[in-house]
């Protein structure tokens, strides 16, 4: 299904437009990529630091429940920016990304990271202080934070490695 979509995209007018814009608007590729990196910085400043706080590694004076409510919207808005800025490159070369194993790895890490971020945010919104009510929930949140942290770091590293997949999958 995704394959059909990638091939359809490769034949589409949207692709022609993306290729035209990236090739003809001066500075568009580095400017778009910079917004993508700034989006990564916002996710780091929200979700990654929240995970570090939950694990007792950063910002000890800040309250976990308060941080969740304050920071998670930053994660969602930044991810929207990253989806938009990333899309133009995927639309311009859909098959390159579809057949790139590192792109698949990045999204295999991103999807569970999104699910865990949603679980943290949703349960805390539904019931204020949800994660701090019992020892069991605190431990569960700690486990989620540890896994999320690894996933987010993996997403960022894998994202940069998309351009270098031949180092990993086509050794000489």
């Amino acid at each position: 299904m995704i394959e059909d979509f990638a091939y359809a995209l490769a034949e589409s007018r949207a692709r022609e437009l993306a290729v035209y814009l990236l090739g003809n608007v001066p500075g568009l590729p580095p400017i778009t990529q910079s917004f993508h990196i700034l989006g990564i910085a916002c996710v780091t400043g929200s979700s990654i630091f929240l995970n570090l706080r939950i694990l007792g590694i950063a910002v000890p004076s800040q309250n976990v429940s308060e941080m969740i409510g304050r920071l998670m919207p930053w994660t969602w808005w930044a991810l929207l920016v990253n989806a938009l800025t990333g899309s133009i490159f995927v639309i311009a070369r859909p098959l390159r990304y579809y057949f790139n194993p590192v792109f698949a790895i990045k999204f295999s890490l991103l999807v569970p990271a999104l699910v865990l971020a949603f679980v943290i945010h949703y349960l805390s919104r539904r019931e204020p202080g949800y994660w701090e009510i019992s020892q069991g929930r605190r431990l569960a949140l700690g486990a989620i934070a540890l896994v999320s942290l690894v996933l987010w770091v993996g997403v960022v590293l894998a994202g940069r490695w998309i351009a270098y997949s031949e180092y990993l999958f086509f050794p000489e």
Binding site: I37, L38, I40, A41, C42, V43, T44, G45, S46, I48, F49, V153, V156, L157, A158, G159, R160, W161, A163, Y164, Y167
Partner: peptide
């Protein structure tokens, strides 16, 4: 690419922390 990917991660931490 290894150094470059770690560079991006580090930038995320530099800008993410200073942003706050």
């Amino acid at each position: 690419p290894l150094l470059e990917s770690i560079h991006v991660l580090a930038i995320g931490f530099v800008v993410g922390s200073i942003l706050m």
